[in-house]
């Protein structure tokens, strides 16, 4: 049997495209997703196109149920407001929607990720004399504390996956088991870290990230090499199902809009 593919989708998927497709698949059956700009936004719009047309997109700017046709540059682009079911103020967004845990999944990025999926988006180097001053927390700490679960999307390099964060902006699983409960966080915290090489998930007991899935053509050694700590590898990591023709075609069409 031959699968019909359009010329656009026949070319092999890039690592970035696979990362986006894998993130979009995680939104099957999800009610609502909180997203920032960039790859998370692309993945969520793709999920609405391919897997989950009823998915509610929530952007930090206060747009709930946005249905963007184009990938927005900022979290506050006009199209998000024009297509939203409801638009709320920032205090309302955090106090009435995020805090009580009304949003099922949050996609977050970060400059640094540690073995317990804690995140740094504040500084590289010393806080008072930073080598690189990053944008800062934005909504991430409270989003990660309260949304149903968190999926981290980050490029897999030693610069990003570090033994020790230079600054803990956002708590993932803290120092391990029980940390979130002690802090009174209501959400489950990070359930997956999706990179351009594979997928890491926290061990249910130790809450340490474990490599559970490899993207096509990537081997375990490559992922361990790109990780700044001695990365644990799950028994027989799965291989990511390559993007289908439908997924890749939809993604490329979306990006070209």
């Amino acid at each position: 049997m031959t699968v019909q593919q359009s010329p656009a989708a026949s070319a092999e998927a890039t690592a970035g495209e696979i990362q986006t497709v894998v993130a979009a698949r995680r939104l099957r059956g999800v009610g609502s997703v909180f997203i920032g700009v960039g790859r998370p936004s692309t993945a969520a719009i793709l999920a609405r196109m391919v897997h989950n047309p009823d998915l509610v997109l929530v952007y930090e700017s206060g747009t709930i149920g946005a249905k963007p046709y184009h990938i927005p540059l900022s979290i506050g682009d006009g199209e998000l407001a024009e297509t939203a079911d409801s638009i709320v103020s920032v205090p309302e967004m955090f106090n009435y929607w995020i805090g009580p845990g009304r949003i099922d999944v949050a996609f977050l990025g970060a400059a640094q990720v540690d073995r317990h999926a804690n995140l740094n988006s504040t500084v590289i180097g010393d806080y008072n004399h930073p080598k690189t001053r990053l944008p800062g927390a934005g909504g991430a700490p409270e989003i990660a504390a309260s949304c149903g679960e968190v999926i981290v999307i980050a490029p897999h390099t030693q610069r990003t996956f570090v033994e020790r964060l230079h600054f803990c902006t956002t708590v993932g699983h803290g120092d391990g088991p029980g940390a979130r409960e002690r802090l009174g966080f209501r959400g489950a915290g990070p359930t997956a870290v999706i990179t351009d090489l594979g997928v890491l998930e926290p061990d249910p007991e130790s809450k340490e990230l474990v490599l559970v899935q490899l993207h096509p053509g990537v081997d375990v050694g490559q992922v361990r090499e790109a990780t700044g700590w001695d990365l644990r590898v799950g028994e027989a990591p799965a291989v990511t199902e390559p993007p289908t023709g439908e997924e890749l075609e939809a993604l490329r069409e979306l990006v070209s809009r």
């Binding site: 106090n95 805090g99 504040t122 806080y127 927390a137 700490p141 409270e142 504390a145 309260s146 600054f167 803990c168 902006t169 956002t170 708590v171 803290g174 940390a179 802090l183 009174g184 966080f185």
Partner: peptide
């Protein structure tokens, strides 16, 4: 009053 900041390095800064 809010839930937040706890556990982060922001608390100290």
């Amino acid at each position: 009053l809010m839930r937040g900041y706890l556990g982060t390095d922001l608390m100290a800064h």
